[in-house]
Design a binder for these strands. Structure first.
Lengths: 239, 239
DNA sequence: TTTATTTTCCTCAATATTTCACCAAATGGA
DNA sequence: TCCATTTGGTGAAATATTGAGGAAAATAAA
C-alpha cells in the first residue's frame, strides 16, 4: 500500500513536479539531487520504485542504474533529455523498466508507475518490498524498515555508519567487498583518499557482533567479507 | 460528493460562463478576479480543483500555480490566451494537470474536470478520510473524523501540529520515519532546512503521552519511530 | 485592542558518533 | 631471514546530534 518511490534529478522543478503528482496518488516520495545520494540511501532504505534522470552531476543515471541492478531488481524508470535510440536501448539493456523523454507528461508517467505496480501485484510475487526489507546472515537480522538490527533476537544498537556498513556487507555477502567500494558507497569518497575510516567502523562493528556466528573477515590488501563461523569447519574441527 | 472548485480569471464573462457550466454538473463554484484572492482563500479554505487564468492583474497564473503547489496537490487547470508550446511546457512542468487555450470549449473543460475527479476516485488514493478513520497504537486511539486522540480512554488534548505528527507516526508505525519526511509532510519544507521544529513538537508530544505504553523513540541520526513499551523483546513488523 | 495558546527560536548541556594519531601485530614478497 | 606495507587496538580529540528550559514570535481567541 504505502509504496515508496525515489527520484533522482538535479532539476528541482522536475523533482517537485513528479513528487506532487505521485504523492497525489498516495505514494511516498523522496527526491535526491544526484544519483549518488539516491544510491547511498537505497542501500539502507530500499524503496519500491526508482525514477532516474540520465543527465546528472556526478555519475550519470546509467551508472547508478547498473549499481542498483547489482543489488536489487526494483523497477526503475529512466528520464532523459536526449531522444536517441541508443540511449533507449542502453537503458533497457542495463535493466530499466521504462523510458521517458523530456519533456514528458506527468500524467503519463503516473500511469506508467501505476501499471508497473499493478503488474507486480498481478504476478502475486509475495510483496516485492517485503523480501527486500529484511536481510539475514547467520544469526544477524536487519529490518530495514524499522532500521534495526538484531543478533540472536536481541537488539544490536548500531550507529548510522555501522548500520550502513553491515547492511552493505550483508547485501554483498556472496563476495569480498573492496575497501574503496565501501568508501565510495558509504562515505561518498569517489577518489582514492588516504583514510582508515572504514577500518575504524569495521573495528567497532566487529566488537559489537563478537558473539555472532557471523564475522567480518579481512581480505588482505583488498577489503572485507562476511563469513559464517559455523560453515568454516572444513579445516577446523574436521577430525 | 460536493466538490468545490475555485476559478481565478479577471474576465467576468469567462468566470460566469464556467460557473454556469460547472454548477450544472453539481459542483460548487467560487470565482475570484485575481489569483492572489484565490490563493489567500485557498490557504484557509482548500478546494478540490482550481482553474487558473495565466494572464491576470497582479501575479500571473504561473506564479500562483507554484505557490499553490508548495502547499497542495490539488488538481489545477490552466487557461491561457497565448498558444505557445513554451507556455504549455512551463505549465506542465510547474505542475498543472491540464491546459486550455482561449477560446476553448466549455464542454471540453467540463469533461476534463470530470475525468480528473474520476481519476482521483479510481486511484483510491489515501485521502485523509478514506481508509481507516480510527487509528490505534498501544493504548492510544485517534479518531480522524472528530480529530481527537485518547490515551487509555481519556482525552489527550493535542495542538494541531502535535495531532498531525502523532497521526503520521501512527500511520507509519511499522517503520522509522526520517526527520526530513516529517518536515516535508507536516511542515511543507521541501528542501533541507536547518530547523528543529520537529524535535520541538516531538518533545511536547512525548510529555503528553508519557503515561502511555507507546513511546516515540529516536532513531539516532535519522528520525523517530513509534514503539510499544510492552513488547520490547521481539518487534518484527509484519511487512 | 488585550489575552491566551501555540509554535518557533535560541543557547547550553549531555551524549553519541566519527575521525585521528600512535604503536603493535600481522602479512607477503625478496 | 629482513623489510615495506597493511591491518588491528587503545584511547583521546574533533564533530554531530539530541534534549531541556525558557524566551521570543506568531497565531488564535476574547
Amino acid at each position: 500500500m504505502d509504496k515508496i518511490i525515489y527520484i533522482a534529478d538535479d532539476d528541482d522543478n522536475i523533482r517537485n513536479l513528479l513528487k506532487s503528482f505521485l504523492e497525489r496518488e498516495g505514494y511516498i516520495i523522496y527526491g535526491f539531487p544526484t544519483g549518488d545520494d539516491l544510491l547511498k540511501r537505497f542501500i539502507t532504505n530500499p524503496c519500491d520504485l526508482i525514477i532516474l534522470d540520465v543527465m546528472m552531476p556526478g555519475r550519470d543515471g546509467f551508472f547508478i542504474l547498473t549499481e542498483i541492478r547489482k543489488i536489487s531488481n526494483v523497477p526503475i524508470i529512466m528520464l532523459t533529455a536526449r531522444d536517441s535510440d541508443a540511449d533507449y536501448i542502453e537503458g533497457l539493456n542495463l535493466g530499466s523498466d521504462d523510458y521517458f523523454t523530456k519533456p514528458f507528461s506527468p500524467i503519463k508517467l503516473v500511469t506508467k508507475v501505476k501499471s508497473i505496480f499493478a503488474r507486480l501485484e498481478a504476478s502475486h510475487s509475495i510483496s516485492v518490498d517485503a523480501s527486500d526489507s529484511e536481510l539475514v546472515f547467520a544469526d544477524i537480522k536487519i529490518n530495514r524498515k524499522t532500521k534495526s538490527a538484531t543478533l540472536k533476537g536481541s537488539e544490536l544498537s548500531l550507529t548510522p555508519n555501522e548500520y550502513t556498513l553491515l547492511t552493505y556487507l550483508m547485501i554483498n555477502s556472496d563476495r569480498a567487498v573492496p575497501r574503496v567500494e565501501l568508501l565510495d558507497k558509504i562515505w561518498g569518497y569517489e577518489t582514492e583518499i588516504e583514510t582508515r575510516v572504514a577500518d575504524d567502523t569495521v573495528k567497532r562493528l566487529r566488537k559489537k557482533i563478537s558473539d555472532s556466528d557471523a564475522r567480518i573477515s579481512t581480505v588482505w590488501g583488498y577489503g572485507f567479507r562476511l563469513t559464517d563461523k559455523s560453515e568454516q569447519d572444513s579445516d577446523e574441527g574436521g577430525e
